[in-house]
C-alpha cells in the first residue's frame, strides 16, 4: 500500500497566496516609479515639451492601471484576509 505522497515543497495554494501578497506590496512601488516619470519631461510651455493632453493622459492612464491591478489583487487577497499572522520574515 502506497503511502500518501507529501507535496514536494509547500502547498501550492498558500505559496500562491504569499506571492500575491508580495505583489500587493510591490504595487505602490511600481506606482511611485511610474509617477516619477514626469520629472523627466521637458515643461509643456517650452519647445519640444510634453503636450498638455499627453501629460494628462499619461497620469490618468497610470492611475487607472493601478486601480485595476489593485482591484484584481484585492479580490484574491480578501479571501484570506481572515488569516491573522504574517509569514515570518
Amino acid at each position: 500500500m502506497a503511502r500518501p505522497r507529501r507535496p514536494l515543497f509547500l502547498r501550492p495554494a498558500s505559496y500562491r497566496q504569499r506571492r500575491l501578497r508580495d505583489a500587493a506590496r510591490l504595487l505602490p512601488v511600481l506606482g511611485i516609479a511610474l509617477f516619477l516619470v514626469p520629472l523627466l519631461w521637458t515643461p509643456s510651455d517650452e519647445s519640444g515639451g510634453v503636450s498638455n493632453s499627453g501629460a494628462l493622459l499619461f497620469v490618468f492612464g497610470v492611475w487607472t492601471g493601478l486601480i485595476v491591478a489593485a482591484h484584481v489583487l484585492s479580490r484574491i487577497l480578501r479571501l484570506d484576509a481572515g488569516e491573522d499572522r504574517d509569514e515570518p520574515p
Binding site: F35, L36, P38, L39, W41, T42, P43, S44, D45, E46, G49, V50, S51, N52, S53, A55, L56
Partner: peptide, 24 residues
C-alpha cells in the same frame, strides 16, 4: 476638449519636479 486643453494657455507640466514629489 483635448484639443482645447492642448491649445490652452496653462502649461500642464511646468517642470516643478520638487513640488511634484514633495506634495505627493
Amino acid at each position: 476638449t483635448l484639443a482645447r486643453i492642448d491649445a490652452s494657455p496653462i502649461p500642464m507640466w511646468q517642470g516643478e519636479g520638487g513640488r511634484w514629489v514633495g506634495l505627493t
